[in-house]
């Protein structure tokens, strides 16, 4: 690492697939709405990017309630990807985000290849900087399996989306696989411009008094500080396996957590469930990372990517 000059503002900018972000801090999809809800708490202009809630070609009702449950050091969610559909999303949510000087990354979901492609094509001419593809949706053609759980299926869908997409494509990997490195390579082989990980880890909570499942959906995705060590390990393994940039997430609760992901090999990070604990957390992570760089005399955050020894 080069020596920085003490007291000089460090360079926080990062470049992901040709898109220049003012800093490496993003919001994790589904934990920040479309940015509107949290714009009362944080100045969106200060964030590297806002990643929106997953959007499909048509409105999705999502799952019955209870959809969320708290667990030790984290939470389970089974929202079921409720979303208003791409038309309303473009008209209302994208229009809102246009006012801010931050990058906009649209998270896309679908039940079939065709549904993913329809959303990707509809976004071609919109002011969207990147697409993030949530491949943790159930693949209706292959039964219960998710698009992101089979390497061949993941390469295929990545290639098809890449062909249709006008913006750089981030494939968002699910941790519910045996070998994350293999999935990272599968996304890269399909032409992904970047990968993001991790999505939630499938979990369950049982109410022992009622002897029933807490979530109506029975299972839900675990997120929050409880999953951070798993996420850091997976980011590191993925970083060993691919050359494309990685966006790391999973339980980030502080700037120190974010730095851990960067050292493991991430070029940028996303703050998720902990927004619910502290609605100003994204801003605090940006400020804290800058302090870290200053404290360690590091000139650019980019030098830290994969710098664990």
């Amino acid at each position: 690492m080069r020596e920085g000059t003490c007291g000089v503002k460090p360079d926080m900018s990062v470049n992901i697939a040709g898109v220049e972000l003012k800093n490496p801090v993003m919001t994790a999809s589904g934990t920040f709405g479309s940015g509107m809800e949290y714009s009362e708490f944080v100045d969106l202009n200060h964030l590297g990017a806002v990643v929106t809630k997953g959007v499909a070609n048509k409105p999705w009702e999502g799952n019955p309630t209870p959809r969320v449950a708290e667990v030790y050091g984290g939470m389970l969610n089974a929202i079921g990807l409720q979303n208003p559909g791409i038309d309303v999303f473009i008209e209302r949510d994208l229009a809102f985000l246009k006012q801010f000087d931050t990058k906009v990354i649209v998270n896309v979901c679908g039940h079939t290849e065709e549904e993913y492609l329809e959303v990707v094509e509809r976004l071609a001419d919109e002011t969207v900087d990147m697409l993030e593809i949530n491949v943790s949706c159930p693949n209706v053609k292959q039964g219960a399996i998710q698009f992101g759980q089979d390497p061949k299926c993941l390469t295929d869908i990545t290639a098809k989306i890449k062909k249709a997409a006008r913006q750089p494509v981030i494939m968002k990997l699910t941790p519910n696989v045996t070998d994350i490195a293999e999935m990272a390579r599968a996304a890269e082989a399909g032409g992904a411009d970047a990968i993001s990980l991790i999505n939630t880890i499938t979990g369950m909570k049982i109410d022992i008094e009622k002897r029933s499942f807490v979530l109506a959906n029975k299972t839900g995705g675990l997120s929050g500080p409880a999953i951070k060590p798993v996420a850091v390990r997976m980011v590191w393994q993925a970083a060993q396996a691919v050359k494309i940039p990685i966006i790391g997430m999973g339980g980030i609760a502080s700037a120190e957590d974010a730095v851990e992901f960067i050292l493991a090999g991430a070029s940028a990070v996303a703050v998720g469930a902990m927004n619910f604990h502290d609605p100003c957390l994204t801003q605090k992570v940006v400020d804290g990372m800058e302090q870290y760089l200053l404290r360690h005399n590091i000139q650019t955050v980019r030098e830290l990517t994969g710098a664990v020894q």
């Binding site: 809800e37 809630k53 309630t65």
Partner: peptide, 10 residues
Amino acid sequence: ACGVGACLGC
């Protein structure tokens, strides 16, 4: 979860 309309949990 969020209490502010972002997570669609409630």
